[in-house]
Amino acid sequence: MLILAATPIGNLGDASRRLVDALGAAEVIAAEDTRTTQRLLAALGIENRPRLIALHDHNEKQKAAEIVALAAERDVLLLSDAGMPAVSDPGYGVVTEAAARGVLVTVIPGPSAVLTALAVSGLPTDRFTFEGFAPRKPGERRSLFSSLRDESRTMVFFEAPARVAATLSAMAEAFGVDRRAAVCRELTKLHEEVARGSLAELGEWAAPGVRGECVIVVAGAEARRVPLEVAVAQVLERTAAGERMKDACGQVALVTGHSSRELYQAALAAR
């Protein structure tokens, strides 16, 4: 079978017993960086020396079939450098190939930078969306944030330390300077830090430079109550495009301040 195994995102003490046992018994490991995996084995005191296959963004399409073919015959462990494979890391393509070929896929759960940052951010955790890394090009970044301006769920982003200040500035421009956010730096490591505040305040905090791996968590937009007739028009536009009335009302309710039931009844009457 194919086994997706979560590895520590900083603190080695977070390596689960299941992970240590699996690493000790593995014959084949597909790893984002084989050098990182070798260091992990050494740090955990594991003497096993499995076959290591490099699996990264540039070769996943080519390697997926080979790895799945091996997993059809024996257990293959799939690791990213840190956290859960396939979440902004290699692995998705291999899982897709395994599912298509009927090869069993399972998980050794463990650390996740996404969930760790969300939990410590101090922002709503009941509904959230993970957006991965923001685009590097300023124009593409502005376009993404503009499309997320009315997103009501808490948003989680990964970002490289050198781009945190620029990303926070672009977020403030798109979401408003008062939108609440948190920058979670070096999670589970010695110098872990969580900076909380408005996007404007965090932009000032990040201006001198930020070091270490970062996760940015941004509060969702508050529902803006718009005139009922405008909201109903949005619902009817969605249903005309083929969306179910119930689904359309639910989505429009998130950004207009009207209840889904109110919109449903009004839209029926307007038909």
Rank of each mutant, 00 (worst) to 15 (best):
A31H: 01
L263W: 07
R136N: 12
A223S: 06
E159I: 05
P135I: 07
L202E: 04
A253K: 05
Q38T: 00
R149D: 01
V105T: 12
C249T: 04
A165F: 03
D33F: 05
E66H: 13
V76P: 08
R153G: 03
D14H: 08
I67H: 01
D178T: 12
G110P: 08
G250P: 04
E204L: 06
F157W: 07
P135C: 13
W205K: 04
F175L: 09
L199K: 02
D75H: 11
L4A: 10
V94E: 05
L55W: 01
R35D: 10
S80K: 03
E97G: 03
R225L: 08
A65L: 14
G176W: 02
C249Q: 06
D89E: 06
S152A: 13
A207T: 11
A223K: 10
Q234W: 07
T36F: 09
R261C: 00
E186A: 10
A99C: 14
E140H: 11
R141W: 11
V215E: 03
R211C: 04
P85A: 14
A65I: 12
L228I: 14
L55N: 02
T188R: 09
S80C: 09
G110M: 08
R163N: 03
P8A: 05
L12E: 05
A119R: 10
S112W: 07
F158V: 04
R142I: 09
S259G: 10
R225Q: 06
L2V: 08
G209L: 11
F145I: 06
V87I: 15
A64H: 04
F145N: 00
T154P: 03
Y92N: 10
Q251Y: 02
E97L: 05
D57E: 10
A42L: 08
A71G: 13
D21T: 14
V215N: 04
S80H: 07
R51H: 15
L2W: 04
V235N: 02
E201P: 05
A221M: 04
D75R: 11
A253I: 00
A269N: 10
Y92T: 12
P161Q: 09
A31R: 04
S121G: 14
V217H: 00
V107G: 08
S112Y: 05
